[in-house]
């Protein structure tokens, strides 16, 4: 597992307080109780801090799934 991938997964499991086993490409916003709007903002803050980036507001809104997040991070030159 690449460093960035493990950081990415860790951000999800820590900020949403979920098991690392369910952090995978099937994970989508609002499909589990933990990834609600509050969890989302905590996740965004965690990713910003770990990758030293600052998301555009549109990207915060578009970040709708584990997979979409990987795509968005490419804009910030973060390859997962």
């Amino acid at each position: 597992m690449s460093d960035n991938l493990s950081i990415y997964k860790e951000c999800f499991s820590e900020s949403l307080s979920i098991s690392s086993e369910i952090v995978n490409k099937n994970l989508k916003y609002n499909e589990i109780d933990e990834w609600d709007s509050i969890g989302h903002m905590t996740l965004i803050s965690s990713l910003e801090e770990k990758f030293n980036i600052s998301f555009e507001t549109d990207d915060v809104i578009d970040f709708s799934s584990y997979t979409k997040g990987i795509e968005i991070l490419k804009k910030y030159k973060i390859e997962i």
């Binding site: 803050s45 910003e48 801090e49």
Partner: peptide
């Protein structure tokens, strides 16, 4: 404010 709070949330 939307931008600046990122610094505070951290």
């Amino acid at each position: 404010t939307q931008y600046i709070i990122k610094s505070m949330i951290k």
